[in-house]
Computed example of a mutant assay.
Amino acid sequence: MSSTPANSQNSARLIDCTSDSAWDAFILASPQCSIFSLSGYLAGQGTTHTKLFYEMEGQIVASALIITPDDSKFRAPYPYSLYQGIALAPMAAQGHSAISKHLKIISGLADAISRRYPHHSLCLHPSLTDLRGFQWCNYHTPDLGAYELSLSYTGIIRLDQFSSFEDFLSSIRAARRQDAKKAEKAGLRIEPSHDVDEFIHLYALTFSRQGIVPDDLHLDLVRRIVHSVLNAGLGQILVARNSAGQATSAVMTATDPNCAYYLFGATDPAFRSNGANSALLLRVIQDGFLSGKKVFDMIGINSPQRGDFKTSFNAAPTPFFILNFNNSIVR
């Protein structure tokens, strides 16, 4: 690892992290743990990025993931990759002490990153709600640049707030339960798959109903992510098949110690009405209960139609923020 002075705070500095194992260990222990920041996921994403630790008083207190594609006007999130921003170390402090410490860490980190990267964009984890440290960066010297905040939403199901999967099932929209019964009546069977080509074929078919033909770059990115997640043991593909063995629908999910994520859904438009989409999602949510996950993240509810479908599973609209920093002055 290499380090550079961060700011005027005593013994505060940014450290370049070149160890995937050290990075992943920090992310997995953080309250902002996210599958999208783990090395196995980043390998499939294929971006140029820098992993940074922020050290204060001899302790690593935060991390930052800086995505640096060729386009200097990049705005987070990178496609299919949320919450790639900062993560904090676990903290024993509580109440006002925790608030004060968080503010100090985030303020120092924001200043340090802004000095090193005149253009950068961060997608923050939903648990980060006190962003004053970013808002106040260069407060008295605005000519040195400022962070702009924009708001997005994801859909979160708090699995740990239900006594059982059956308790959860009773809370969702009736149409979703009816879909699952329709799929069962149609004789669909749900099974795991490692056939990435089959999944990508279904994924491409999903867009055909809208008259959209995904370009090769788009499909290649999805393929790389799916391969990487499977190879790293971070997720699975589930496929719904009809009695003839034909794949009618599929989902790709990923997991970290606390959360399961709905990454991709794919359906052959010829079988849209068989209820497989809902049946598959209910199966992976049930798997979340069985494996002790606390949260199921629908990964974005920022378009009307998809947002309505995802919230119909009792996914609570949950805000997260995107930060963009721009400074044309070279320091």
Rank of each mutant, 00 (worst) to 15 (best):
I237T: 02
C259S: 14
M252Q: 14
A260G: 15
D216G: 04
A247S: 15
D256N: 15
A232Y: 06
C259T: 15
A244Y: 05
Y262M: 03
F264A: 05
G235M: 01
H227T: 12
R241L: 02
T255M: 06
L219I: 10
Q236P: 00
A232L: 07
Y262L: 10
G265S: 12
D256R: 10
D220S: 14
V239K: 09
D216K: 14
Y261I: 04
Q246D: 12
Q236G: 10
A266G: 03
G211T: 11
C259Q: 12
V226Y: 04
D216C: 00
A254P: 07
R241D: 04
L234S: 08
A240D: 02
A240R: 04
A254I: 04
S243F: 00
T253P: 02
Q236I: 05
M252L: 15
N258T: 13
I237W: 00
T255Y: 11
A247K: 07
D215H: 14
A232N: 10
T248S: 11
L217G: 14
L263Y: 07
Y261F: 13
A254E: 03
G265A: 10
L234I: 05
G233A: 01
A266T: 01
D215A: 09
D256V: 08
H227A: 00
V229F: 03
V226G: 08
V229H: 04
A266C: 01
A254V: 03
D268F: 04
G265V: 06
S243T: 14
A247R: 06
Y261W: 10
D216Y: 05
T267I: 08
Q246E: 14
A240W: 02
R241C: 11
M252A: 08
R224G: 03
V226P: 06
N242Y: 08
V239G: 12
L263F: 11
T267S: 15
A232V: 07
M252I: 14
G233R: 03
I237P: 00
T255C: 11
T248A: 07
V239I: 15
T253C: 11
I212E: 04
G235F: 01
H218P: 08
V226E: 00
V226A: 10
T267E: 06
R224E: 07
L221M: 13
Y261A: 02
C259D: 02
R223C: 04
V229T: 09
V213I: 14
V222C: 07
L219D: 09
P214W: 07
H227P: 00
V229S: 01
V222T: 04
N242L: 04
G235H: 03
V239S: 10
Y261K: 01
R241A: 05
D216I: 10
I237K: 02
P257I: 05
S243N: 11
A266D: 01
V213L: 13
M252G: 06
N242P: 08
